[in-house]
Nucleic acid binder design. Sequence first.
DNA 1: CTACGACCTCAAGTCAACTTGAGGTCAAGC
DNA 2: GCTTGACCTCAAGTTGACTTGAGGTCGTAG
Lengths: 147, 147
Amino acid sequence: MKLLDIGEVAQKSGLPASTLRYYEETGLISSVARHGLRRQFKPGVLLRLKLIAMGRTAGFALGDIRGMFGSDGRPELPRAELHERADALDRRIRELTALRDTIRHVADCPAPSHMECPTFRRLVNVAGRAAGAAARRKRPRGLTPAD
Amino acid sequence: MKLLDIGEVAQKSGLPASTLRYYEETGLISSVARHGLRRQFKPGVLLRLKLIAMGRTAGFALGDIRGMFGSDGRPELPRAELHERADALDRRIRELTALRDTIRHVADCPAPSHMECPTFRRLVNVAGRAAGAAARRKRPRGLTPAD
DNA sequence: CTACGACCTCAAGTCAACTTGAGGTCAAGC
DNA sequence: GCTTGACCTCAAGTTGACTTGAGGTCGTAG
């Protein structure tokens, strides 16, 4: 099984080497050898990094993500927990959908001030209910928008 | 127009007073008076906080959100920019949907190791494409999952 | 065989978004 | 008029996820 130099992994994953070192240090990934000083990774690390990226996108903290993998590198979580995560994602998706609709409406609505547009107010209410509840559950820590 | 004490705003919005002060300090909201020392807000601040919460949920940084409001407190952004944001949200929603499906699949798939399940690999590929691209665009900064 | 560039370690710095703490002020109720 | 509790300011601390910098080590191309 051909090994990948950290440089190759960086290039193929799009992550800087410093991040890969950090991920290894915190136990998210592991290198299997050295070539001189250079870390060597199994190709499977790329899939793992993909999964990590997915988790990050979904808003999970690295610690959470670490908990989703067994020490052997396979995803391992009780079904109930996974369903819970999936449901949380569902809620999040609904919030984002409402927000997207609100934004699109604002972009297209001809009303002089959105605050006076009933459609806007309705959308804000739908989206705001969820967002408000989320704020009360736990304070979010910004996630850069995919721009 | 009746004014709201910071305590009332905190209670109604679900945000701690310290956060409200912080938001004011950073120009996201503004108080219109004092009662003794206590900040007094216009009722409209509640809607504004809702919008801020929505933006946070969508993954926008506070600085971004600040940029979405005119100095008078009304949302103000060029249509093009709004459409761009909405499209970014759409991409994000698709990523999350793929991730949700992946997680649900993992929860229900009877295969001994997910890595060997073709359905899993396909889902990862769908979701991973987007997430990988996102990673390459900009590094995300974790957003607590709505638990 | 020497130079080069890509990697190494380890400590410290950064950034956003808040929170916490010390010490102070005020309006309202008793 | 005094206490009380909710608020105030300002500086400093926290957390997560990295990045940066200084100083060092290799393997390979020339």
